[in-house]
Nucleic acid binder design. Structure first.
Lengths: 255, 255
DNA sequence: TTCCCGCCTTGAGCTAGATCAAACCCGACT
DNA sequence: AGTCGGGTTTGATCTAGCTCAAGGCGGGAA
């Protein structure tokens, strides 16, 4: 318990059982080098590596909750995380589906505001927390990192937040198709027969938050897509034909 | 004409008539000091002031179009600008209503991508363009500016882009009410009798893009709001009672 | 002045998706 | 095995907002 506080693990993680909150040394991790932190000089990278802490979390854990004060930036070394925002009436909106290798929580951190979203773990994940203090220290003297982070934050309003995905212009079926196309390059693998395999344990409710409709509507849309042999949803396996997805999208995704 | 090219005025501005494209010296302008550029040292501020150029543009002018390559950051010294995004099918979405004193175009500039939106002038405006080269030069050595700009960009996904404003959860009437509440503190003045006055020449169509519905629906919602004595829309004048707006919003705006 | 074009308003119908409800499936727990 | 609870499916109904269409208003140009 004392150790956990030392690690600056956010309170929401304190619920984790001992087995999943393994302290991991975080050696030889290339993830950070691939992300915006590629701009770091070796000495600076060493500073970051020395300070950051990693842990393993299971599905359902929240890395942080809407309203929490940011403590730093999270780096998702493996697994999947869903960022959602809930309004006062309790309506949940999916903002971003985070894949392994991506950073989490940086927007609120740099906005210097409480987290505007909740980060919930979808699949067993290994997560690093890079404390804010180190970040500011390194930023102080590395202009290239500043530029890389500005680019990261500026590009954050990704495709999943594209207004056209939620506007009244697309049917539920089209929105679902667009969603698959949007996350395709980051989380789908191509099967030998050319079809796409998405391995994500998304509930109907979670999908619904991402395209702004009700879960029942997703059920019906899924049914339609199967009937038209465009895509099948079996548990956490989604298998789809790229050609038919593109055809069903009708209007190409912009930008 | 040669002078205009010297000024690095974007091509979309080249359409302006001579009278509105006045070259203004941009002296004694406090706007930049109030914005993120407050982090600048006097010498750096002088660099920026030396390089930037200002011009006066009329309603309908576009500062830049979706797809254009960013040339720098615009500073709106006076007037109003609407940022919109259009998808391949021609559906327009209003992203941000820019008020005087605010910066424009910084997101795409720092994303180092073509502009994702079009900036259209709503009321006669005076605009400064701060060329990208100066920005990078100053950023190189001023970590405080980097932090301020990170904050600016991170906070950019403002309330108008809040998902709850477009989701299926709010009626058109409620969305319109929320829109007024959202822009209130930045563009409404309080009349002697306590009511709010918004002085903005917004067409029904422009309002519709901001809340993601059809112009006809706005017409009907406006009619309702007048009937219920919540707000009146006369040309470019919107007069509303704050109390009744808040009551009509039902669910308080989150965050 | 007249014409014209774009914006606004209002009406009438239609339809996609929300809403409510029932039944089913399945894994976790006792 | 039995129970329980959450997720899913499917049906029936309802309604808000889209769509199309017609008419009015107003400002700018010839």
């Amino acid at each position: 318990m004392t150790e956990m506080r030392q690690l600056r693990i956010p309170p929401s993680l304190a619920r984790c059982t001992a087995t999943e909150l393994t302290r991991a040394p975080c050696k030889n991790c290339g993830v950070c080098a691939d992300s915006a932190f590629g701009a770091l000089a070796p000495a600076e990278l060493k500073m970051v590596k020395a300070e950051r802490r990693s842990c393993v979390v299971r599905r359902g854990t929240t890395l942080f909750n809407q309203g929490d004060e940011p403590q730093g930036i999270y780096c998702l070394r493996s697994g999947h995380v869903l960022l959602t925002q809930t309004d006062v009436a309790g309506n949940e909106t999916g903002l971003r589906l985070v894949m392994s290798g991506e950073l989490i929580g940086f927007r609120s951190f740099f906005a210097e505001e409480p987290h505007a979203a909740t980060a919930r773990v979808l699949t067993p994940s290994r997560v690093c927390l890079i404390p804010g203090a180190v970040l500011w220290k390194v930023l102080e003297r590395n202009a290239a990192l500043a530029r890389a982070l500005l680019r990261l934050v500026a590009r954050d309003q990704g495709p999943m937040q594209a207004p056209f995905l939620r506007g009244p212009w697309l049917s539920v079926r089209e929105r679902l198709v667009h969603l698959l196309l949007i996350i395709r390059d980051r989380c789908a693998e191509t099967l030998p027969d050319g079809r796409l395999l998405f391995d994500l344990p998304l509930t109907r409710r979670e999908i619904a938050t991402m395209v702004g409709v009700r879960p029942e509507s997703i059920s019906r849309a899924v049914h339609d897509l199967r009937a038209e042999e465009i895509a099948t949803f079996n548990g956490h396996r989604i298998i789809a034909s790229l050609d038919r997805l593109v055809a069903a999208a009708k209007t190409d995704r912009p930008h």
